[in-house]
């Protein structure tokens, strides 16, 4: 690994140390999912014999991949909130806690720091959250299988459905970071706002981050009669809505549209907006870098 890549890796790892309390989070996630599953299984174990519920012959076990789909879609909401919050604070927190002087006293350039923060938000945080999400889904699937086995199903039935579970897991592993790349123009804008922000104009930076898009969205149709901004927002949120639609379908019908999932991903890559948005995101990151370089550290 060359020196720059090694430094970037060290900086990304440090960002994760700051943003994610791994051990506590792991305990909470695993413990919460296990508790939920245990309660569900206990409920079924208690009431199934009383109510005399048995699975009719010919009915297959619930699709495990569908469960992963719905948990993955919920995980997408969580990772989205986390990443938006991360970019809003990325270049501001170090000025708030005055650690910027420490970072500047190290042989690390501003470019490397901005690149590390961008990589953390686009890839590292989504992937860590993907791992947590899939772990929750696995724990819930275990208890779902346990519950259905109490009603007469084969315990492994939910795992070995025709739709490969692995495909859904891999899909979300790819989709989480790709969706963040899809949102890069928004995330780059937030990074720019965080670079512009300072302890004195903290509120102003929030107003800038939210107010400018809001005003643009309201004024554009009134002033010009066009809807470019609205169309763009609709396009940007398209894949998110599509994943939720597929997840809900999979739960209602207990079957998994994996093909449609991968098709959504393929569609994103082939859209020119995806690449154009990437350039816009890079542009905002470059502006953020410029501001960072010209900022005065706190006295």
């Amino acid at each position: 690994m060359n020196a720059v890549a090694f430094r970037l890796f060290a900086l990304v790892r440090c960002e994760l140390w700051q943003r994610i309390r791994f051990r506590r989070r792991l305990g909470m996630v695993a413990g919460g999912a296990a508790l939920l599953g245990l309660l569900g299984t206990g409920f079924i174990a208690l009431f199934t014999p009383v109510l005399g519920i048995r699975i009719q012959p010919g009915v297959t076990a619930p699709d495990g991949a569908a469960l992963f789909m719905i948990v993955g879609a919920i995980g997408l909401v969580i990772v989205l909130i986390r990443v938006l919050g991360y970019f809003m604070h990325a270049l501001f927190d170090e000025r708030l806690d005055r650690s910027i002087l420490f970072w500047q006293s190290l042989p690390v350039s501003d470019t490397e720091r901005v690149a590390a923060k961008t990589a953390t938000g686009l890839f590292a945080i989504p992937l860590v959250n993907w791992a947590y999400t899939m772990m929750i889904a696995a724990i819930l699937l275990f208890f779902l299988s346990l519950s259905t086995s109490l009603m007469g199903h084969d315990f492994w039935g939910s795992f070995w459905q025709p739709v490969p579970l692995l495909s859904v897991i891999v899909f979300f592993g790819v989709f989480f970071p790709v969706f963040m790349l899809w949102l890069f123009p928004v995330l780059g804008w937030l990074l720019f706002c965080s670079a512009w922000s300072s302890p004195r104009r903290r509120r102003a930076s929030w107003s800038l981050a939210i107010g400018v898009p809001l005003v643009l969205g309201i004024l554009e149709p009134i002033l010009t009669g066009t809807h470019y901004f609205g169309d763009w927002v609709q396009l940007l949120s398209g894949p998110f809505g599509r994943i939720w639609h597929l997840a809900l379908l999979s739960i209602v019908r207990w079957r998994n549209p994996t093909g449609a999932l991968w098709a959504t991903l393929g569609w994103m890559f082939t859209r020119p907006e995806f690449w154009l948005g990437g350039l816009v995101g890079l542009g905002f990151s470059a502006f953020a870098l410029y501001l960072l370089h010209h900022h005065e550290p706190p006295n």
Binding site: R98, S99, F102, Q104, S105, P107
Partner: peptide, 19 residues
């Protein structure tokens, strides 16, 4: 600055370590 900091060790006048 980054290149310079390979050669220079600096202690600022205020606590600035990431807490």
């Amino acid at each position: 600055r980054a290149r310079l900091m390979r050669e220079v060790a600096y202690v600022p006048d205020q606590s600035c370590l990431p807490l």
